[in-house]
């Protein structure tokens, strides 16, 4: 009985901050949208550039029934997933190899350090000429940018295996494969997770860039098209869509990361 009675007390104590945590952002977002609506309706912000929020929402809902939104979103997301898979896969494979074979890594390091900061968008004209303007071009650009972002942390991660663990492995005479499988790969995982999160946003940026510049179908293309067609509401609707896609993808990557870490008993680290 006493236990039952003490429960509501405890709940009341925690419930107020929880309400605030939900209420504050809701109020803040409502105030922001309301202010935008008021400023644009009264023409303080030129409505030609900033259509009222309600109009953007109406356009967005209208677009949902249109047949250009679905294919655009699908094309962007498909290329994004593929680019993420390829860059993370390739980056991990090469990174593990270089992490394990030190002389090879020392040999290639200057080349890596030179290629890494090259802005991959600089390659767009070359890619257009050689690969063309299909989704292959966007895929290549996104992978080129994200590959280095995965490669370098993975090398560091493989190297970050604690010395004690490695010594223990030696005294238990673990085979090379066992050492890699049970010590060096797990110590790489947190680094890989951070790198994947970074790569997820980089690949999305480059795919949207490719869509805008080389006019391949996708969200970015719809954004530029709306601007040149003088339809700002539609432009904002698609920009919002790109943000929503970004959030969904972030959550997805974070969830996979959490599951991976949990399965390797790394929940607390980073």
């Amino acid at each position: 009985m006493t236990a039952v009675q003490s429960l509501p007390v405890a709940r009341r104590r925690t419930s107020r901050p929880r309400v605030a945590r939900v209420a504050r952002p809701v109020v803040a977002v409502a105030v922001l949208i309301g202010a935008q609506e008021a400023l644009t309706r009264t023409d303080v912000l030129p409505a030609g550039y900033f259509p009222p929020a309600s109009e953007i929402v109406r356009t967005f809902v209208g677009e949902l029934g249109d047949d250009s939104l679905g294919p655009a979103l699908m094309s962007t997301v498909r290329t994004w997933l593929l680019a993420l898979l390829v860059s993370v896969g390739l980056g991990t494979a090469v990174g593990v190899l270089l992490g394990l074979v030190r002389p090879l890594e020392a040999f290639l390091r200057p080349v890596i350090e030179f290629m890494r900061p090259v802005p991959s968008v600089a390659l767009i004209p070359l890619v257009v000429l050689t690969i063309g303007t299909g989704s292959g071009a966007a895929l290549f650009l996104a992978c080129f940018a994200a590959f280095w972002q995965v490669l370098v942390p993975v090398i560091t991660g493989v190297r970050s295996a604690p010395a004690i663990a490695l010594d223990t492995a030696r005294s238990y005479s673990l085979s090379t494969w066992q050492r890699i499988r049970w010590i060096q790969l797990p110590s790489m995982l947190p680094h890989l997770a951070t790198a994947t999160r970074l790569a997820a946003s980089t690949t999305l940026i480059l795919i949207v860039t490719a869509e805008i510049i080389i006019q391949m179908p996708g969200i970015g293309h719809e954004i530029t098209m709306s601007r040149s067609a003088g339809d700002p509401a539609r432009m904002y609707a698609y920009i919002a869509l790109s943000g929503a896609a970004g959030i969904v993808l972030n959550v997805l990557v974070r969830r996979i990361e959490k599951r991976l870490n949990a399965s390797h008993g790394l929940e607390g680290s980073r």
Binding site: A20, R21, R24, P25, V27, A28, V29, L32, Y49, S201, L204, I205, L206, V208, T209, I212, I219, G220, I223, T224, S226, R227, P232, M235, Y236, Y238, I239, A240, S242, G243, A244, A245, G246, I247, N250
Partner: peptide
């Protein structure tokens, strides 16, 4: 803390927009 709580969802959304998607917006402005 209260500022963070209030605007972090809005920030999270703005941040998720890939920067290059705003090129047409910036050109319009």
């Amino acid at each position: 803390t209260f500022v963070e709580q209030a605007i972090s969802p809005a920030l999270e959304f703005a941040r998720a927009i890939p920067a290059t998607a705003l090129i047409p917006f910036a050109m319009m402005l």
